[in-house]
Design a protein around this nucleic acid. Structure first.
Lengths: 329, 329
DNA sequence: CTTTAGCACTCTTTTTGCTTAACTGCTATA
DNA sequence: TATAGCAGTTAAGCAAAAAGAGTGCTAAAG
């Protein structure tokens, strides 16, 4: 069991370390606790016994352990209010409601990265409940058309369609009509299947140059499946923190930020705001990740902040929460 | 004047240094030049006198100066053929012609970054000769519509339009008709002006709730001007090179990569492939930038590779050239 | 006139020992 | 239970020493 004084001590040490990035000595806390350094040392030793504090070497001050941060986040930290400045900077983004959702999210997370000096990550994809509402085909020249697909949720994708030579406009028109008729209402991830098993047979019968035409449209439409977009911003911000003063560490972390396959893995399915401290995440032991899932109008994904383990957890949580709430509206 | 042997020596030193990243000593070149180290030292001293070589300290081997690299690039280096592997990796991208141009460029530059370990940058924008060919408005729900604008060059942009409450569908329809009629053929960068001075007066007369409706569309359509998209990929690749083993240097370079306003500045207007060595670019004295302008179908921009000054200039040039040629087609 | 051998000199890099300052743990005492 | 005091540990900074890699210069040889 942890006493009230120990709790207060842990809180002070965590917050002091977050601020200064230096191990906290017993002497430094005397005034605040109105007792001698020896007393503090005794309490520190207890907290170390519980695994909540660590020393960097035998005679160093104390630093929170992963378990210590976890205890702080779960049991000590209180929900924080955003400062006026934070709200002002972010409010601009969401008041401009002609921005497409994904742009608004990216921009706001960019700002959060600037405000906090942490790295912002946004993963997005069109969710599976997007069904095709409208297909528009616009001819550009004899061989090229732009196909635009709009879903019932307002998601838009466009593709080039390259029409082989020697095909009559009539035939192209007929194929478009066939596709249009059969594809409305189909979910994005089923488009390839529907083209192959429903559209193709019809085209085969009704159109002369069926093979070439079908292929042209299949190429364009076969990849509407769930592609995850990846945005990583403010990697250099993170490296300003003093714990990243080692070249190999920097390289290893940056390598991960550059690897979009790896980044896609930080996807979060939980609707709450989750914190992954040190070894709890896959990026680096000195790093914490705070993230949450979002869904709105057929777009879903994850927003995440990557900071040092010495992250201002309360503020980071408040910022993510603010953005999440604004996405919801 | 520079003798043939000096030219060959410079070539050997540059290429050796590019390979090993270590100052080249006179002894190391004895075998290749079939003479003693003292002879090499004499020639090296001449080249240093010409400003083509440098020493890192009094008793070190030689390293090319910026001027030396420049001489190498301009007068010694020969155009290089791409390896089969390079061609194979890149060919896949361009054979898939349903990819929208900007995606094809981004993907191929990503691959180039992987192949070379340099950082790839792609700047793109819709060029000024894009004129609106079609406006499509798709209702999503009572208050929200998606407006899609397609230009004669095949460029597509979409925006949310939020319709205020209490406006009849008829009025919305009429506004869309007015906009559609007046906006076709207008260049993207003139849209805001045309809306304000040609569309607004007509709407004011013809529609009841003109103010609110006009604003809704103006918000959505006013920013079609030239926005430059920015892609930076493979920053961590670059940092693998041994010259970037200093934390402050890494931070300074990464800071610039993160600053999209700065990155936009590396825009190149020259149609040829240009090399900016060391102090000739704004990123870092140890860095070279090789880049070129591209234009195709209403999209224009810059593709660039950022590498150490010890860059394999020949290969980098060949890769950029390959992509440029494939964009052209 | 060009090339070479030889040698003194310079500068970097690595290792080592030393000193100082910042802490802690422990023990004895209030 | 809290405190004062002291011995012990470690990091960090600094200077000196030793080793290694190259150069420039001079004088002699081709």
């Amino acid at each position: 069991m942890i006493t009230d004084r120990q709790k207060k001590l842990l809180k002070t040490i965590v917050e002091n370390y977050i601020k200064t990035a230096r191990p906290v000595s017993s002497k430094a806390l005397c005034k605040r606790f109105k007792c001698s350094s020896a007393t503090i040392r005794n309490e520190m030793a207890s907290l170390e016994g519980l695994g909540l504090l660590q020393k960097t070497h035998t005679s160093s001050g104390r630093v929170p352990s992963d378990k210590g941060y976890r205890y702080y986040v779960d049991n000590i930290m209180k929900p924080e209010e955003l400062s006026d400045e934070d709200v002002m900077r972010l409010g601009q983004i969401f008041s401009n409601n002609s921005l497409v959702l994904s742009d608004a999210i990216s921009k706001s997370m960019e700002i959060v990265s600037e405000l906090t000096n942490y790295t912002a990550i946004v993963l997005g994809r069109s969710s599976d409940d997007n069904r095709i509402a409208k297909v528009e085909v616009v001819p550009i020249d004899n061989n090229k058309m732009i196909a635009i697909v709009i879903t019932d949720k307002g998601h838009v994708e466009n593709r080039n369609v390259t029409i082989p030579d020697n095909i009559s406009k009539d035939e192209v028109k007929r194929v478009i009509e066939i596709i249009d008729k059969l594809i409305i209402g189909v979910s994005l991830s089923d488009v390839a299947k529907v083209l192959e098993f429903e559209v193709k047979p019809v085209i085969d019968k009704a159109v002369k140059q069926h093979e070439a035409l079908y292929n042209a449209f299949y190429n364009a439409f076969s990849d509407f499946g769930p592609k995850q977009s990846v945005m990583v911003r403010g990697t250099s911000n993170l490296l300003k923190e003093p714990e990243f003063d080692d070249v190999d560490k920097i390289r290893s972390i940056l390598n991960k930020f550059d690897d979009h396959d790896f980044i896609r893995n930080i996807k979060e399915d939980d609707d709450g705001i989750k914190v992954y401290i040190g070894s709890e995440n896959q990026i680096d032991d000195d790093i914490s990740v705070i993230k949450t899932y979002f869904y709105k109008d057929g777009e879903e994904g994850t927003i995440a902040l990557v900071g040092p383990k010495r992250m201002e957890y309360g503020r980071a949580e408040a910022l993510l929460n603010y953005i999440k709430e604004n996405i919801g509206r």
